[in-house]
Design a protein around this nucleic acid. Sequence first.
RNA 1: AGGACUAUAGCUCAGUUGGUUAGAGCGCUACCUUGACAUGGUAGAGGUCGGCAGUUCGAAUCUGCCUAGUCCUACCA
Length: 949
Amino acid sequence: MEKTYQPSDIEQSWYQTWEEKGYFKPSGKGDSYSIMIPPPNVTGSLHMGHAFQDSIMDALTRYHRMKGNNTLWQVGTDHAGIATQMVVERKLAAEEGKTRHDLGREDFLKKVWEWKEESGGTITRQLRRLGASVDWEHERFTMDDGFYKAVQEVFIRLYRDKLIYRGKRLVNWDPKLHTAISDLEVENKEKQGHMWHLRYPLSDGALTSEGKSYLVVATTRPETVLGDTGVAVNADDPRYQSLIGKFVDLPLAGRRIPIVADEHADMEKGTGCVKITPAHDFNDYEVGKRCKLPMINILTQNGEILDQAEAYNIDGSINEALETHIPEDLRGLDRFQARKALVAHFEELGLLEEVKDHQLMVPYGDRSGVVIEPLLTDQWFVKAAPLALPAIKAVEDGDIQFVPKQYENMYFSWMHDIQDWCISRQLWWGHRIPAWYDEEGNVYVGRSEEEVRSSNNISDEVSLSQDNDVLDTWFSSSLWTFGTLGWPELTERLKTFHPTDVLVTGFDIIFFWVARMIMMTMYFMKDEDGKPQVPFKYVYVTGLIRDESGEKMSKSKGNVLDPLDMIDGIELEDLVQKRTGNMMQPQLAQKIEKRTRKAFSEGISAHGTDALRFTLYSLASTGRDINWDMKRLEGYRNFCNKIWNAARYVLMNTEDHDCGQNDKPYELSLADKWIVSKLQECEAQVEKHVSEFRLDLASQSLYDFIWNEYCDWYLELSKPILTNESSSQEQLTGTRRTLVRVLEAILRLSHPFLPFITEEIWQRIAPLAGKQGDTIMTQDYPVADPSRIDNNALGDIEWLKGVIVGIRNIRGEMDISPGKPIPVFLHNGSDEDKKRFESNKAYISALAKLESMEWLTGEAPLSATQLVGSMEVLVPMAGLINVEAEVARLTKELDKAAKEIGRLNGKLNNEKFVGNAPDDVVAKEKAKLADAESSYKILNDQVEKIKAL
RNA sequence: AGGACUAUAGCUCAGUUGGUUAGAGCGCUACCUUGACAUGGUAGAGGUCGGCAGUUCGAAUCUGCCUAGUCCUACCA
């Protein structure tokens, strides 16, 4: 083996071998265990958040595979409708100066597929580099034919069951992307704006109770005045009661609109009068429905003022009676220009009462970044409430559990107030809606035009046209757990692997995806007894990975880290280039460059996949975001190096020797029994922590055992035996056997977390440990055996550590060179101390570099003292030790003991404590006090003795 | 406005049902190129557990209030 650990030498070739040999496929044996990967965008690339979640999924997958489960990690990608279409449109504009309309739907879609083929490999390459043990043979893409069949089937059945409907409704309209988007895709941001107070003259000479001839309404969007169809007041409002049923003359539009009573008007707020624009405001839409007001749309799909408004009745039918005039100079104006123009008109007319500064929440499209406009359009909706009921119950009943649990509240609060889901998108890239229209506008839903014709007896003379819209990407993603397994066919895979075991994802898509997956899956997937099947039993919600100062990683901030750069390393110049190239907002480039040069002045060095993964696990405590720290990554690379070198040591001392493979007699030392006991403890901890999704604690247990017990102590303890010429063959074999077998167990135990380095080392270690197999991946996962825990060995070695650390402490504090052998006396030992001394003498002597060690007989020479229990470990001072330093050291110890005694006395003299605390706690405190007092006495005597000189 | 989460060593984080002398890694200090490892070893320094009050024999841990930060939901004519 090479002297230093070089991850790049081993990782890629092992992955290739595993994949070629088919180790990632389900074994077909054992209870099934399955995880569906949250499908990343096929044209995107994986960021640190993906690396985090995928590493967790891989650890769970590898763990259960080794546990003997029939394990499937299903892989696939998502077509990401809006995002992908936007990318291709931008590309098309940049390269050919064309819009998608220039190409036409069919040719544009060809371009998208080309782009998908071109860029789609990025994700899969990255997954391979992360070591993801996914079943590549069954990779799925949401736009594949098979998956489309599932999407279509779901749409058709929901339509048939009256859970999908089409209608003219107010939706969130993106005037840039020309599509409807769902509530969840709207980002509300606080903005400084204005509130305009406008006068609406009362018709027919009516007056308010204050004798005014007009009402005052307030609005933040004056341009919507053109679409007003009423003014609402509260029925209990004495100021306006008498006006209910009367009219106002709507300025500019030339319309008489009614004054209606509605609870929406709050007497306390503003003037108490609310203008009602049902076609341009969600609240007003509801008021319109209640008060049977018509709806007037004044905007085009670009958000510009129409030449003539469009009037509809509240049921969506066309209203021909209403006046739809729009003043000439406003026509065609953009909504924000129209706002200014309209205010100017009101001012000229003397109808502008006042303008106030006003903070308001403005909705923006999360993709386009433009202000979203509520707009009246024909859309398809899923009736969500009936689907939500069983989905709520599943979580209430614990059939699905969120980890950490508090996310259940978030889920419930959204589900209890769920709105119908607008699923149509005015895009080209996506699953086209399986609905056809005849010339009268009748709708037929079916699998194909032929099917629609035959099942509805439509002759070939009647022309049918398919709906132009596609479905929301999340509609298809919501079928992911069963759609990927072959549904609507009842495949063997579906039966075997559904429901899946755990979903690993971020909290940001609980509503978008998790909730909708639960609703859809429970509607379509049933057990044999008809009980709805959940998509997964656990939802493990991870935190976000943020940058070193806690900021969210984003391209525009330029603080994004690519997981592959952590693995392979990257030069500073390349990193700067990567972060500043191809930006949406090039003006930020300079700032980003500066920031990058500051944070990574040396670039990023290579750390390897194993180190990256282990870092991610170590930081994966639940319910908490992670501030990424390069120093942690370095630390865990060092950990890998430590394992590497420990393996080198083991191999050097065991290869070409008998390691107990052949049933020859061997003898286990105390140290052997001790490390085997510690291994059992570690195995039990890892098992417990993994079962509770605490991969941070699991990795901590491994780190601690491997570095602080196996390497720091056991390897050192093996040296005295292996290098001592008088060691017997049985002793040598026993030690070699333990070295190799514990290491082999460590490798298996660590493999789900550190897949590559464990495989590389295991290949050489396994035969020495009597193990056979082509790969560590399919070996049995270690299981703790409590019968192998030897409490005597545990106690003895802890005692031994105490003695050695005590001597080293004296060495360290007294500046005695580590290489200089020193004599040691022991004094005041119990029978047990004496027994332990006899059996550990050789170890102590070697590890503490002693010249001699014996029980004190007669007068003690002047010495530096350490206590192990009440036994004194004495290092004679002659020529070695500085008196003042020793007094200082002892005084420090003495102070500590004194403080402890004071604290314990206070506690034990408190009758309430002694009376109330459990006996074992009291006994423990008493024992502590006795120890502290005895230490104090011995230390004090020692100080006196030295001082007396 | 409602809700959730966070606050522990200089930094990044653990701390299970209240019983600790509050832990880890990195960083820091001193010493050490000893035969697995300087991507290392040995020893050490470093914390009034955000603040205040309460419950309790006992609080980092439970309760209330406050402060700071992050996020979600809703509303604002």
